[in-house]
């Protein structure tokens, strides 16, 4: 029942029109890169200062100075460009990046997002997440529908410290595609074999 991680990634990739610009978060969202068809000519942005990420380098092409925001080695495609962090976040904050795809701990039906901090747990920092959710034209959340303990992640109101208030446009989980609108999660599509009851959406 439901989508595999790869099927979720393929679904997210299908939302991007040709020639759009996309920022992919670390973890689950990074799988989306593999599912974007080359002929769509999509430019992948990484906030550490590159537009036009292609994928992994060959052994011969590895460069210590060519990395993504996850600090992993990458390669770039023709037409790519490098820039400093201020310009990179200016692209985000200025609304020039069409989509960002991020993981989440909680999303609520007002479109508020929590994905950077659990009080009392290990501190990691928000990195670029707060800038991305307030800047990208469309914010897509890609995550498992429930926690490992089976708890809800789509809520009426988030409990964890927020990353952004009313910023999320689309939520893709292993159970389907949901849209927070007018204080409710609207079902856009359910994964094969999934029913509305399975999703335990808040009222």
């Amino acid at each position: 029942m439901g989508w595999t991680n790869q099927e979720m990634a393929r679904y997210v990739a299908s939302l991007f029109p040709s020639y759009s610009s996309v920022n992919l978060g670390i973890g689950l969202p990074s799988l989306v890169a593999e599912e974007i068809p080359t002929e769509k000519s999509i430019m992948i942005h990484s906030e550490n200062g590159v537009l036009g990420v292609m994928g992994r380098p060959t052994k011969e092409a590895v460069s210590a100075t060519l990395i993504n925001a996850g600090k992993e080695t990458i390669s770039i495609k023709k037409g790519a460009s490098f820039f400093d962090s201020s310009l990179s976040f200016g692209m985000i904050r200025g609304g020039h990046i069409d989509y960002c795809v991020l993981g989440a701990m909680e999303v609520d039906s007002e479109g508020s997002l929590a994905n950077w901090m659990i009080p009392g747990k290990k501190l990691t920092g928000m990195g670029g997440a707060m800038d991305l959710v307030n800047g990208a034209k469309s914010v897509i959340i890609m995550m498992s529908h429930f926690t490992k303990n089976g708890e809800r992640k789509l809520l009426k109101e988030t409990k964890l410290p927020l990353t952004g208030k009313s910023v999320v446009q689309e939520v893709i989980t292993n159970l389907g595609h949901f849209r927070p609108i007018n204080g409710k999660f609207q079902i856009i599509e359910l994964a094969p074999g999934v029913t509305e009851a399975d999703c335990l959406l808040p009222d």
Partner: peptide, 13 residues
């Protein structure tokens, strides 16, 4: 040294 934190090569996720 120009250390690489996460070396990922072609074919790796």
């Amino acid at each position: 040294k120009n250390d690489i934190e996460f070396l990922k090569l072609e074919g790796e996720l």
